[in-house]
Design a protein around this nucleic acid. Structure first.
Lengths: 329, 329
DNA sequence: CTGAAAGCGCTTACAG
DNA sequence: CTGAAAGCGCTTACAG
């Protein structure tokens, strides 16, 4: 007396399994009273179609994975966790409406065996070009889409993160005639950094200031950013604004400015990208960009489904990045 | 030419499907060179056992769900998101080592159909007694465990959140001879609030001060806490410390104290429970408690697996709550 | 309009 | 030691 099967339900209802199946799917007509009886019986017996059997038979998809290329339980500060999890929450909701379950993929440790992960599709979040998570899914023939273009993999469908536009929004806000704006991004070659750097170079040229960039290893987190900013601000007193896309780095910059006695925003203006709790609660609060992650997550799920079904995806419209001005600028 | 099946692989290797199956499972001896050949061929052909067929046949579990009773994409501020996601990250990792995938369950909307969610077990996070998520899984016969005891459901296995001990740690830290400590918790009847309130009453009696409690609707978030704290602090000038388990409420209290010109920690000491980003980044930073959520998450997964297998769970040892003293006290 | 039967891709008791 | 065959619980083309 485990869970009842379709056979048992059919027997109890005095019909064939075929009819029971159709009573649920509606794929062909079933006499209303018969249908009624079957459904009532089902609830009473606690019948639920075994999804494994259903999927095996129909070949339909049931689960998709969300994978971050960054450590999931970020030891070096939960900087990316908020970003990832905001996406996870939205993606889970969208997935549900498409009858899919969203599974979390823990980070690929050198020794970890991801053998258990068998999903029908995967969303990867801002991967680097040679991300192991990409080859993992590739090898098993699992359809992949990415949030943010994947450097070096033009074939992987992606939801555009509009990083150029995002960078421009920050830079235009930070700019004052005569300004020199600095840029601090991550060492890892993620597309968002690449696009930001490109937009920054262009902007500097247009405005006529000498660009100054620094790259920080993401693992180092806030502390690493603090050190770099200390050095940068000490040596380049003419820099009066810094664009720092990674929020954890941005708070490091704030700390460095404070150490050096540079008032924010009067002496130094700072803006970051992800408008998460970190930006909101920083002291002073950080000017950031609304990336519309809910739209991004939904679009990613849609894109993945289209890809799994070999459909040509309909480009989703994501709202343009919106500046959220706070005390840091 | 979709994915190869075990039959195709067997044919290619010149053996029976039986042998292929055993080559992978190791459930019975297969000639080393044969095994070698099969495995090599498998990688070359890109063969992966269809997990749906495997599970259907063996009846084994493959997925577990993590469900929050609170809105997942917390519209009213991401207060609980961090807490939940820290658990999600750890649980996903633990689940993986047990060959299980962790699925996120979006919040139960009145209109949402969770029909798609078919998991082998579920972990619910600090549910209230009559949580709809409980009856949802109950109805489908899905094994449930809870993080935090479920009020009114003594039969649901749970990982103890040690809320009494946590409350005591905060209270003992806040206490000074002659103090009067206030308490602000949530309206919802979660076990952690109940235990905290009980510990608080006891503590007040022992120390000989008159307890003063306020309850806030979780949906109201920081703003609601601000209003309540404003009123509370204005009317009870003798309250020189407040215990505020919910971090979003705690930052509201900080804001209220500032509005009233009450210096922290000299005039007023504040402590909160969850040591997340909010507590760390608040101004002043909030004294909080290390709840060892990684251990809690791991224990919950273990407990769930034991429950699914009808095994008697071995009580996991969670480290006692550890105070993290910061500037707010 | 309804049901018997084949088959999705595996695993494993059973037979040789 | 190895393989043929049954069966996990469904869905759906097919036959009546």
């Amino acid at each position: 007396m485990g869970k009842p099967t379709i056979i048992e339900l059919a027997r109890a209802a005095g019909v064939s399994p075929t009819t029971v199946s159709h009573a649920f799917s509606g794929h062909r007509h079933v006499e209303p009273e018969t249908k009624e009886r079957i459904l009532a019986l089902a609830t009473r017996m606690g019948y639920h179609a075994n999804p494994r059997a259903q999927r095996l038979r129909t070949g339909g998809a049931s689960t998709i994975a969300l994978a971050s290329s960054m450590p999931f339980a970020v030891a070096a500060g939960p900087s990316k966790l908020g970003f990832l999890m905001e996406i996870a929450a939205s993606a889970a909701m969208t997935a549900l409406t498409r009858n899919l379950a969203l599974c979390l993929v823990p980070p690929l440790q050198p020794d970890s065996d991801l053998g258990a992960i068998e999903v029908d599709g995967a969303i990867v979040v801002e991967p680097v070009g040679d991300d192991p998570i990409i080859s993992f899914f590739r090898n098993r023939g699992t359809p992949i889409v990415s949030i943010g273009r994947v450097p070096g993999h033009p074939d992987i469908p992606f939801v555009d993160m509009q990083s150029q536009a995002t960078a421009r929004v920050m830079l235009e806000h930070l700019w004052r005639p005569g300004s020199r704006i600095g840029l601090i991004t991550g060492e890892q070659r993620r597309n968002s950094y690449l696009e930001t750097e490109a937009a920054y170079e262009t902007f500097a040229r247009q405005c006529g200031f000498t660009p100054f960039s620094a790259w920080i290893n993401e693992i180092g987190g806030e502390e690493a950013a603090y050190e770099v900013a200390l050095d940068l601000l000490g040596r380049h007193r003419d820099i009066d604004a810094i664009c720092v896309p990674v929020d954890a780095f941005a708070t490091g910059v704030l700390a460095a400015a404070q150490s050096l006695g540079r008032a924010i925003p009067t002496d130094l203006r700072v803006a970051t990208r992800y408008d998460g709790m970190r930006a909101r609660l920083a002291t002073p609060s950080l000017t950031a960009v609304d990336l519309h992650l809910d739209q991004v997550a939904e679009a990613a799920v849609e894109l993945l489904i289209a890809t799994m079904e070999h459909r040509v995806p309909s480009r989703a419209a994501i709202s343009p990045p919106g500046l959220v001005v706070r005390n840091s600028s």
